[in-house]
Design a protein around this nucleic acid. Structure first.
Ligand code: FES
Ligand code: FES
Lengths: 144, 144
DNA sequence: TATATTTCGGATAAAATTGTCTTAAATAGG
DNA sequence: CCTATTTAAGACAATTTTATCCGAAATATA
């Protein structure tokens, strides 16, 4: 569904958001430990998210990453996905024709469109904030 | 969503089925021309589909690929996808945790499950046959 | 039987993705 | 100002995916 980079990006975003909500800044090492991802690779992804203004970074001792608290319920899953994978997965043709095209649809278009639009709606309405809720109570997990 | 290999595999299957329904056997060259895919790579994928008994192949002059007519409405999209990509896409965790796990779900589990199950249902109920209908009438397309 | 056609199978190559390493830049704190 | 810590940036490496190539095997047909 998504690339590894994107999966790490989403997990990292959720973790950063959760920590930001209790006023904590987290660094690369903590993040990759919390979400069980390769440290250097994750660092690259964090750079991407930073460039896309989805998270903030600060250098130096006691530096690290945060998500602005007022943004946590504004940022949607789709923002993370677009920033890393682009929007092909929820806008492109399921059979790989360049651009999904209503006028010249692939044979699976009608079937795919339903699923893809559901995915799109889900990504565009799900906030990072709501994904943090189960975490601190131990109902949901960012690694296993 | 799917790999390139899988996209080609689905398009090829639909084309082969369509031709088989009018009694025509098609070879690698025709197929990759019809679906606009790299010939040698497509040949590999056709081998996979053959091994999985989704299509039949015959060697020699006038050889090529067919789909058994009585199977065309039995074979589902999920059969093609599983044969090439496996079932990760509609059974795995959306955030990349190994195995989706109801007991220890990722934060996005509930949201993802809905979409993924819809995808699963679509793939498991859509037959190759119904995907061929629009083709000959020029309503749907395997390339653009 | 000889030949041309076609799939099969394995090796190889190119490109994209995933992952690592090293150095530079920023910054907090002594 | 100096040092330790942390992110930024770019080069590099490994792996996976995508794609090509070639010789062998099968087969129709002349
Ligand atoms: S054209 Fe293929 S999904 Fe719309
Ligand atoms: S655990 Fe992530 S989708 Fe089920």
């Amino acid at each position: 569904m998504f690339s590894k980079a994107c999966e790490y990006g989403i997990r990292a975003s959720i973790y950063i958001a959760e920590q930001s909500m209790v006023g904590k800044r987290v660094n690369q090492k903590e993040i990759s430990k919390a979400i069980d991802s390769p440290e250097a690779f994750t660092a690259k992804i964090l750079q991407q998210l930073t460039k896309n203004n989805l998270i903030n970074s600060e250098k130096g001792p006691s530096g690290g990453f945060t998500m602005e608290t007022h943004a946590i319920d504004k940022i949607k899953l789709s923002n993370i996905v677009s920033a890393i994978d682009g929007d092909e997965v929820y806008k492109g043709c399921g059979l790989g024709l360049k651009k999904c095209n209503e006028k010249k649809p692939c044979p699976a278009h009608d079937k795919f469109k339903i699923v893809r639009d559901e995915l799109k709606k889900m990504l565009e309405t799900t906030t990072i904030k709501e994904l943090t809720f189960g975490l601190k109570d131990g109902f949901t997990f960012l690694k296993r």
